[in-house]
Design a protein around this nucleic acid. Structure first.
Lengths: 333, 333
DNA sequence: ACTGGCACTCTTGGTGTTCGAGTGCCAGAT
DNA sequence: ATCTGGCACTCGAACACCAAGAGTGCCAGT
């Protein structure tokens, strides 16, 4: 439907209901307003567009955006300037935190929307190293380093003290059993490990092992960082009420994690969730454009942008795809 | 000035310019509106209040709020329910991240404003432990644990490999020199440490030591977490334009760190920065109520709330003070 | 030093009224 | 069959206008 596409494009550009006359003029479709009106009536019957009130122009509905996005054959490619912008914004990152931070900022400035980047999930990652540090005889610092470079640590208080010897032995066993394994599988590997130790330290050993498993279980440590929340203020006109529920939603880690978690797992490809398709009611007037990224071929986490349903989908999709690929390449190399 | 106080209280409650009649009635000061008008004229000449337009009520100026806050003798004590709320919100935190997270949320829900909590600053903190982990012969994970429980880590790639022996010796020396010291003083202690080692590994040792110093210099790792940004949407009426500049400001770590850093060092006491007193122009219509907190007697970092200049200062001050004390107690114990 | 009164000033809110963009529909042209 | 031009109709946005009310400053009187 050329008309639907024209309506969406016009509405995105002007943010005002688009009428038949201006539409026929602005887009060079060589037909008269009356013809456009007929098409519009059909589109309205089908539920793809709606008018805010009688005798006003038409506005795309969520269904209309959905059709528009699905029919979108070729995503607008990024301009050279944009590619260079991505490259220069991500250049020179020193560690994982820095990479994620730069990525989310790049995405926000590129799209002028709220950008989200999920930290590489631990579940699918591999362990590079495990370290135990006895800070005091009964206080142990446990450090786990993922293949992706992410480091997590926790202090464990043990019921009984552990000798240096015990600690060294436990460290060696943990390294032997865990390094190279997937985070998700390690719980099984470590079962019964405390049985290898003397009965009087088993409780303490068990606690430490449990801490490792818990850290690896990892869900509790999943994180989303975001940037560009201020762009919401700019888009405030697109929302009926206040932007409050949206600010509330993006501030809640769990909500954002759920949002990204619900996405399809198709690596590399961009998926879009529009307005009422969201499960969270506060986001009913927003759309999410997101993609998976990962080191190597596998999707490790997601990133995306959140904006008003009246957003520039082709550009957003292109930007998200480009950034996701760029990030994947950085993590692989 | 009883009249100024009454004006501020009324304006905070209603968010509308307050006139002489309603003021004389609502607050039981037994004088007539005409008398109040005289006082108001004096206050206006002195610059403490202003009228948005002729024949409208008066609104406090920044100077007016300032005087109000300074003359505020007794901060309103928290209700028992609020104290219990703080306690229950902070109960059961497992590590430093969790404590900070809970604190900032508690402050936000308590005050209905944007809450800020700075991570305990490393500069003033003491070192509890330093650990080196050779992940590969020429890749070293450096971990520093502060007295406050905060852990920072970094991976250092060294130009030459280090033997296990070198690593062990370096670890021992670092622990000997650094543990118990102030972060700010450690750079001096570690000068020339690499000279104790064989010439062929001096470069590598120097790199590791430099990394430790850099981590301790710490500015780069200072962090502020915030919560309750959505409350800004609620206060939107209090801002002349959009809330955009404010959202932008609070999203920038450096701006927030500067903001908290500029505060007076008086431990335990609450300081207030009002509207135009801010150096950052985006915050010209906001006020910050902040206090230091720390383990023991010393101020380690700051926390506070940011809201419209038209905020309930007595309540905010009380809440900030209470939370700062509570947090200090947790960190000390 | 406080009070009551009075004239004056503005904002606010309600009511028409007009203007224009936009619609639906129908008869005619292609 | 499909598109087009024309026409009557609708309804929100913009504007002017008016009345009400809240608030002020000032002055004379207690």
């Amino acid at each position: 439907m050329a008309v639907l596409r024209a309506i969406v494009e016009d509405y995105v550009a002007t943010s005002e209901p688009v009428g038949s006359r201006s539409l026929a003029e602005r887009h060079g479709l060589g037909v008269s307003p009356a013809t456009v009106r007929n098409d519009m009536a059909a589109l309205e019957d089908a539920g793809y567009i709606a008018q805010p009130h009688t005798s006003a122009g038409r506005v795309p509905t969520d269904a209309g955006y959905r059709l528009f996005v699905d029919r979108l054959s070729a995503a607008k490619p990024l301009s050279g300037a944009e590619k260079r912008a991505i490259a220069s914004l991500l250049e020179g990152a020193v560690d994982l935190d820095d990479i994620v931070d730069r990525t989310v900022r790049a995405l926000a400035t590129l799209t002028h929307q709220v950008a989200l980047v999920q930290y590489p999930s631990l579940v699918r990652s591999q362990v590079r190293h495990v370290e135990l540090i006895a800070m005091e005889p009964s206080r142990m610092l446990v450090v786990v380093i993922a293949e992706s470079g992410r480091v997590t640590q926790r202090v464990v208080a043990t019921p009984t003290s552990l000798s240096d010897d015990d600690v060294a032995r436990l460290r060696a066993r943990l390294i032997a059993l865990a390094v190279g394994q997937r985070f998700g599988q390690i719980a099984d590997e470590l079962i019964g490990l405390e049985q290898e130790f003397a009965p009087e330290v088993r409780d303490a050993i068990g606690d430490v092992v449990a801490a490792v498993v818990e850290m690896l279980a990892g869900q509790s440590e999943e994180r989303v960082v975001l940037a560009g929340a201020s762009h919401l203020a700019e888009s405030a006109i697109d929302f009926t009420g206040t932007i409050r529920p949206i600010l509330e939603a993006i501030e809640e880690q769990v909500v954002m994690l759920k949002l990204l978690g619900e996405l399809a797992e198709d690596s590399g490809e961009v998926s879009v969730r529009i307005g009422s398709e969201h499960t969270h009611s506060g986001l009913a007037e927003t759309s999410l454009v997101a993609a998976g990224y990962g080191a190597g071929r596998e999707v490790v986490a997601h990133l995306g942008v959140l904006g008003p349903t009246r957003m520039d989908y082709p550009s957003s999709i292109a930007a998200v795809r480009a950034v996701a690929r760029y990030l994947s390449r950085i993590l692989s190399g």
